[in-house]
Structures are given as structure tokens and as C-alpha cells.
């Protein structure tokens, strides 16, 4: 690869630093390159390969896009894709040892399986809520002694209802919600999250309102457990590495990255899965090997990893993220129109 091309398309990992970190392919930066924006060129180069989609986990490669855009998707996934979460807690009785405010906070963090796309944002200051913007849950538990187990010493046998889990949350339809949703549609994602522990005589009587919100406002609204990307590693061996050096080289990278091949009775190192490398740069601590290895990362190859909290499938979340960014651009396009009309009136 020629030097200019390398600066443009690779991030170079050196012993004491990282080079070519920033995007430089803007018009006027390189003679002989047309770097102006072209949708056709973008569509030709852009690719998405789904690598893993398993329940709540998604891994995919996004190739041929700039970090600015990939990062926008990541940021939107974290804090701008809406979900439903408990926001208002009405505590009629709580005689457990867990304080009201701590309990309210714990309740808020419970992921609620309800499609946020079917709900509206609740208007500011509205305490009542309507069927369009509110989901109501009720939690009514009273712990009692298990009379049948006199000899028992284990809490599980001695007491009834002493572990308050999300299983106890009962959905209360608001307005016409019972016609739109069925019992299973709206419930906590997991029914075994421990909320509090009770002892005989202690009780809880709580009503909760779930509203639609985004992670920017409170992390409980974030639809993902993690959403991150890394650049595809590239490892280049600039000269053949054989024998003991090859074996040592193999240990300096993540498992599976370097394979040893038999070449005329000698072991020779070969890079087989650069993708698996974690880019520790351990190789640069070996003086006899560091000159033979070049470590890069491919600037426009993003390995995304999205892990949903279970409210929406991860592939739906990524689609929603793209829609959020599109909504932003559309909102400002209309704003721009209004500004221009206003400007012309002034003139």
C-alpha cells in the first residue's frame, strides 16, 4: 500500500504512540484525490455484515463509514433510543427495612418489557397520565410466617412471600389498554429480580407509573446494557518469522491470531485471525521481533457490539438509532425552512 493511502485508511499502532488517528480525507487535503461527498461512492463501498445475533446480543461489522457517523449511532443507542421505565412511585405503605427512596430507585431500574414505539412521551407536569403515555404496576406484598414449617431454620421455609421479586409486579391496565395489550405484553423483562426482602409482618403497598424516556435523562431509560465498537486490527509481518521466534510471536498476540505453518521442516508464523487480536502491542517489548511486525487498525471498519437489556431485540435498536439520527436531520431541515422564511420577512 502506498504511503498516502496508508495514512488515509489506517490507524498505525507504534511502540510509544498511535499515528494517523484523525480522519483526513477531506477535499483539498490530498492532491489527486476527490474527497468530496458522494452518495453513490458511499453506497458502493458501504457494507454491513451481521456476525452474531443471539437473543439479546448482536455483533456486526459496519464497513466504509466514518468514525463520526459510527460514533453517532453508538451514542444514540446509549442515550437517545427511548424505552419505558418506572418514573413515579406512589408508596401507600412500606414497612420493610429498605427506605422509600432507595426502594423507588431500585424499582426505576427494573427493565420493563413494553414496546416504547406504542407510547407517547408524557407531558411535563402531568401527574395523572393517560392510556397513551402511562403503564401502571401494582406491588402488594405482605410477608407471613409459614405455620407448617415449625422446625425450619432456612428463611425460604420459615416465611411466605419474604423475597419480593419482579414476579410480584402486577400490571394494571389504564383506560382501554386491556383491549390493546394482553397480560403477557407488558411485564418486567425478568421475573426473578430481587427488589427487597421482608420478614413476617412487614408489607409493601405500592403503585408505579412507567413513562417513556431516554437515557440522556436517566440511565434507567437506556435500552442497551452495552453498545460499543472497535476498529478491525491489521497485523502485517514484514519478513518471514521462523522457529523459536515464530513460537514466541504466537504468544504475544491473543489466542488464535497467529498460526504456525510447517515450511520445509521449520515452523513459520502466519496471521490468520487478526480480528481476534486485542491490540495489546506486547510484541513491541521484544526487540528482535518489533522490527518485523506492523500493527494497524482499519479506519473505516467498525466491529459493533450491541447488547440489549431485553426490552427490544438488538437489531431493532440499531434500526431505531438510525431513525433517531434521521429524525434529527429532518427536524433541522424544517427549522431551516422556518428560519429562512422569517429572514425573508425581515428583509
Amino acid at each position: 500500500m502506498d504511503r498516502i493511502e496508508e495514512i488515509r485508511s489506517r490507524v498505525a499502532l507504534h511502540e510509544y504512540g498511535i499515528d494517523n488517528v484523525h480522519t483526513t480525507d477531506f477535499p483539498g487535503n490530498y492532491a489527486g484525490y476527490d474527497d468530496s461527498w458522494s452518495q453513490e461512492k458511499f453506497e458502493k463501498n458501504f457494507r454491513i455484515d451481521v456476525k452474531k445475533l443471539d437473543g439479546d446480543e448482536l455483533e456486526f461489522d459496519m464497513i466504509g463509514i466514518d468514525a463520526a457517523i459510527a460514533n453517532a449511532f453508538r451514542r444514540i443507542l446509549l442515550v437517545e433510543v427511548p424505552t419505558m421505565a418506572i418514573e413515579k412511585v406512589f408508596m401507600y405503605n412500606n414497612t420493610s427495612i429498605i427506605q422509600d427512596e432507595v426502594l423507588a430507585h431500585r424499582l426505576g431500574l427494573i427493565p420493563i418489557r413494553a414496546d416504547p414505539r406504542l407510547f407517547e412521551y408524557r407531558a411535563e407536569g402531568d401527574m395523572e397520565g393517560t392510556a397513551e403515555d402511562t403503564i401502571e404496576f401494582q406491588l402488594k406484598v405482605k410477608c407471613s410466617r409459614n405455620k407448617e414449617a415449625k422446625e425450619a431454620t432456612a428463611p425460604d421455609e420459615m416465611y411466605k412471600d419474604h423475597k419480593v421479586t419482579t414476579k410480584y409486579l402486577k400490571w394494571v391496565p389504564v383506560g382501554n389498554q386491556s383491549e390493546i395489550f394482553t397480560e403477557g405484553d407488558i411485564k418486567p423483562v425478568h421475573d426473578d429480580i430481587l427488589i427487597a426482602k421482608l420478614r413476617p409482618g412487614q408489607e409493601m403497598d405500592i403503585t408505579m407509573h412507567c413513562v417513556k424516556g431516554i437515557g440522556k435523562d436517566h440511565a434507567k431509560f437506556s435500552p442497551v446494557a452495552t453498545a460499543s465498537y472497535r476498529l478491525l486490527p491489521e497485523i502485517i509481518l514484514t519478513e518471514p518469522i521462523e522457529g523459536e521466534r515464530a513460537e514466541r510471536l504466537q504468544t504475544l498476540f491473543s489466542p488464535g491470531v497467529i498460526q504456525l505453518e510447517n515450511r520445509k521442516g521449520k515452523k513459520r508464523a502466519k496471521v490468520v485471525h487478526a480480528r481476534r487480536d486485542m491490540c495489546s502491542r506486547e510484541v513491541f517489548r521484544h526487540d528482535d521481533l518489533k522490527e518485523c511486525v506492523k500493527l494497524n487498525r482499519v479506519r473505516d471498519h467498525f466491529i459493533f457490539s450491541v447488547e440489549s437489556t431485553g426490552i427490544l431485540p438488538p437489531d431493532v435498536l440499531v434500526c431505531e438509532a438510525a431513525k433517531v439520527l434521521m429524525a434529527k436531520t429532518k427536524a433541522f431541515l424544517t427549522e431551516l425552512q422556518d428560519v429562512e422564511i422569517g429572514g425573508r420577512k425581515d428583509a
Partner: peptide, 23 residues
Amino acid sequence: LEDLNKMCEHVLQTFENSVSEFK
């Protein structure tokens, strides 16, 4: 803004296609 919007549209399309292909 228009370019960004068109780009997102293409990303969304490509992603949806890749996911259904994968499924």
C-alpha cells in the same frame, strides 16, 4: 443535513437487509 439524512437511510436499508439475510 440532506446528505446525512440520505446516508442514514442507506445505512438503515443495508442493515435491515443484512439482518434478514442473516436470520
